Computed example of a mutant assay.
Amino acid sequence: MTERPPLRTVRAGVFTSVCASVSVGGHSLSSGHGVPLGGLIVGSALVYAVAWAVTGRERGLGAIAGWMAWSQSALHLVYTTAQSAGGHHGSYDEALAAASGSGGMLAVHAAAGAVCAWWLRQGEAALFAYLRLVAVALLPLLALATVSPSPPRPRTTGSAAPPRGRETVLYLRHSLVLRGPPAFC
């Protein structure tokens, strides 16, 4: 099921807020230092851009977990770089070494990503189930709104039957038939 841009924007925003907030909390606790606001903004913008690009349709748990793993890794790198720019790790080279070699922090990011992916998949399934339910509930109403009663036909007297080979076809009142079989005279 595909969706319109307003709902797509909201879904990307939810994914970004869950991913960034869990990631910044875990990263700050693991490193012992807060993440600067600039790092949070850059990381959130990056994750939002990718999330908006991939939320065109409903995704399964595997796809969500994959994107969550990617986003957690990207946020880990952005947060570590932002912390090094803020003077918490010493130099930029030390920050990159810490970002690539900190197994405990990467494990925390991976665990947070797995939990968030499961949680987001539950929300995704509930949202699309609701949208399908609304579509099924509104379909009969839409069908009733588009069907209009045909105008009454004048009564004919006698045995005036339509010519053979012709069938009476009811068209919607707003349709225009431009082609058809040749008329039998």
Rank of each mutant, 00 (worst) to 15 (best):
residue 169 V to M: 08
residue 101 G to I: 08
residue 171 Y to F: 13
residue 64 I to H: 03
residue 2 T to H: 11
residue 120 L to H: 02
residue 10 V to W: 08
residue 50 V to K: 10
residue 75 L to F: 04
residue 66 G to P: 09
residue 40 L to T: 15
residue 177 V to W: 01
residue 104 G to V: 11
residue 33 H to C: 00
residue 184 F to A: 14
residue 87 G to A: 06
residue 181 P to E: 09
residue 179 R to T: 15
residue 146 T to V: 14
residue 160 A to E: 12
residue 51 A to Q: 11
residue 166 R to T: 15
residue 38 G to P: 03
residue 154 P to S: 05
residue 85 A to R: 12
residue 31 S to F: 10
residue 28 S to H: 02
residue 22 V to A: 11
residue 39 G to C: 08
residue 172 L to M: 05
residue 82 A to P: 04
residue 66 G to W: 04
residue 45 A to H: 07
residue 21 S to R: 04
residue 2 T to V: 13
residue 62 G to Q: 06
residue 175 S to A: 13
residue 83 Q to T: 02
residue 14 V to N: 05
residue 21 S to Q: 11
residue 6 P to D: 06
residue 138 L to Q: 07
residue 164 R to K: 12
residue 142 L to H: 10
residue 41 I to P: 05
residue 77 L to N: 07
residue 92 Y to H: 05
residue 49 A to C: 13
residue 95 A to I: 00
residue 8 R to T: 09
residue 80 T to V: 14
residue 87 G to I: 03
residue 178 L to F: 09
residue 38 G to R: 09
residue 83 Q to F: 03
residue 17 S to I: 10
residue 119 W to M: 12
residue 64 I to D: 06
residue 35 V to P: 02
residue 53 A to D: 09
residue 179 R to E: 11
residue 103 G to C: 02
residue 67 W to P: 04
residue 71 S to T: 07
residue 160 A to L: 15
residue 148 S to R: 13
residue 62 G to N: 06
residue 118 W to Q: 05
residue 145 A to R: 09
residue 56 G to I: 01
residue 53 A to N: 07
residue 152 P to A: 06
residue 145 A to L: 12
residue 6 P to S: 09
residue 27 H to K: 01
residue 131 L to Q: 03
residue 2 T to K: 14
residue 146 T to K: 07
residue 172 L to D: 15
residue 1 M to Y: 04
residue 159 S to K: 11
residue 154 P to M: 06
residue 104 G to N: 08
residue 42 V to T: 15
residue 103 G to W: 12
residue 13 G to I: 07
residue 176 L to S: 07
residue 73 S to D: 03
residue 124 E to L: 01
residue 48 Y to G: 02
residue 134 V to P: 00
residue 85 A to E: 10
residue 122 Q to P: 00
residue 50 V to G: 14
residue 43 G to F: 05
residue 70 W to Y: 12
residue 74 A to V: 13
residue 52 W to L: 15
residue 24 V to Q: 04
residue 28 S to K: 00
residue 80 T to I: 03
residue 165 G to N: 07
residue 167 E to M: 13
residue 21 S to E: 08
